[in-house]
Design a protein around this nucleic acid. Sequence first.
DNA 1: GCGACAG
DNA 2: ATCTTGTCGC
Length: 227
Amino acid sequence: MHINRLHDWPASEAEAVALQHALRERVDVSAPPPGPISLIAGCDIAYHLTEPRLFAAVVILKMNDLSVVEELTVSREVTFPYVPGLLSFREVPALLELFSDLRHTPDAVMLDGQGIAHPRRFGLACHLGLWLDLPCVGCAKSWLVGDYAEPGRTAGEASPLSVDGAEVGAVVRSATGVKPVFVSPGHRTDIASATQLVRATLSGYRHPAPTRAAHIAAGRSRAAAGV
DNA sequence: GCGACAG
DNA sequence: ATCTTGTCGC
């Protein structure tokens, strides 16, 4: 798919933070995705054990049966340090490389990371969402910001996640008995739709099918590289 | 000053 | 993210 340039990549953390403040106002989480979602993309990245290199993966799944129709991986040099709150500057470049080579254009994207449940309301899912101009949902494995009540122990149960009294997402029990995941919209989807999308792709594991498939693909890519 | 911190 | 064996529970 074709991708329009959104901005140049910052070299410092200060520049990155400034860019987040400038881009956050373009994020739209006011409404559900514009159309039906029949294809969904899952993304994840694995890191080299000793070198500054990553292995990114994007997998396209059909929403009706969660079968994989396309899978792409790429290895790349890591160009930005890991700083809580600035994760997207480390992972988005590699993901964009993959999306530009995709044969299918997904109707929505799911990522391992936060959407607007972020210190500056601009998590990984928001950033990739703006670049792709596609509905993006953040599904993080751990907490970054916000208050919430522990959701029920059964798969599908959820409780609201809020920051300063404003709802930003939901804490979802993705499988019975596992630690919940933190779901928040990134772009072109509202909180309810983001949560429903995660619920609709649960497959018995802690991670929803899209990100789970991407996680496995990224790991396989790294293994194939000899580490 | 202290505690917290997606991947 | 990544290193790791066994082990508890359904």
